[in-house]
Amino acid sequence: MRINVKELIAKGKPVHLQESMDLSGLLGGRQDLLSFGELKADLSARADGEVAVVEGTLTLHVTMECSRCLGPAEERLTVPFRESFTMEPASADSGGEQDELHQITEDFAELTPYVEEAVWMALPFVPLCKEDCKGLCPECGTNRNERECGCSTERIDPRLAGLADLFKDTTEDP
């Protein structure tokens, strides 16, 4: 996926890009991804002076492993996308704006690496199958979303566990 920056700036007419991308090379090796669909990119490019601005949304359906119950967590990612490109050399007075402006040396700007980066950063760090997922029982491993296991949920700080045993001995003696 690429745009002709030189032509876009010269004509000053916006360009609409709608493409699908296969992300198998990018996401194929991830262990936490159970499946993923094709990326749909709906972008528009416009000239802003000597800068080409590409913005829009990226949409991707992913199925990941829930971080609590290990079941499938399906999510439709809608990722905002905005990148700016210029053919002009960097100037010293541009300051912080330069960090967001990509200088290119040819007529075309290749968008694929920027799209891939946006998708990579948008993947959930802690995917959940649902907001109130109860997870797995730490004692028996039962999925608490499906049924209750009956295991004790009382938590005792391991540093104080010895004190709990001390109090049991004094209450049992008559």
Rank of each mutant, 00 (worst) to 15 (best):
L26Y: 06
V79I: 15
E7I: 01
P89G: 07
D157I: 01
G71I: 02
S91G: 09
L77E: 04
E100R: 14
V15D: 09
S84T: 02
G141T: 03
D173T: 15
V51H: 02
D22H: 04
E97M: 13
P89D: 13
L43D: 00
C133A: 10
R46Y: 09
A41R: 02
C69G: 06
E7W: 03
L111R: 02
G150V: 00
C149A: 05
V79Y: 11
L26R: 09
E19F: 05
M21P: 01
L34S: 08
C151R: 04
L163Y: 06
G28W: 07
L23H: 01
M1Q: 12
D99G: 14
P138N: 02
V51R: 06
L17Y: 01
P14D: 06
E55Q: 10
R159I: 03
Q98A: 15
L160R: 04
E139H: 10
V115A: 14
A122E: 13
V51C: 09
V15F: 02
L101M: 09
T78F: 10
E110I: 08
C151A: 03
S152H: 02
E88S: 07
L43Y: 05
I156F: 02
P80W: 03
G71M: 10
P158F: 00
R144C: 08
A164Y: 11
N143Y: 07
L111F: 04
L136E: 08
E74P: 07
N4Q: 05
E172Q: 13
R155V: 15
E97H: 06
E100K: 15
P174F: 12
L160W: 07
L39E: 09
E116D: 11
R155I: 13
A161K: 05
V62T: 05
E65S: 13
K6Y: 01
Q103W: 00
E146C: 06
W120K: 07
H16E: 14
T86M: 12
S152P: 04
T142Y: 00
T63R: 14
G135R: 05
G56A: 12
D173V: 14
K6M: 00
G12R: 04
F167Y: 13
A122F: 09
V51M: 07
D42W: 01
H102K: 12
S91T: 02
F167L: 15
R46T: 10
G95T: 13
T105F: 03
F108N: 12
T153A: 12
L77K: 07
F108V: 13
R144W: 08
P138E: 06
G71R: 11
L70A: 10
L101P: 04
Q103G: 05
R2N: 11
C66E: 12
D99C: 10
C129I: 00
L60W: 03
L39D: 12
G162I: 03
E19I: 02
E88K: 12
D157S: 00
E83I: 08
E50K: 12
E97Y: 09
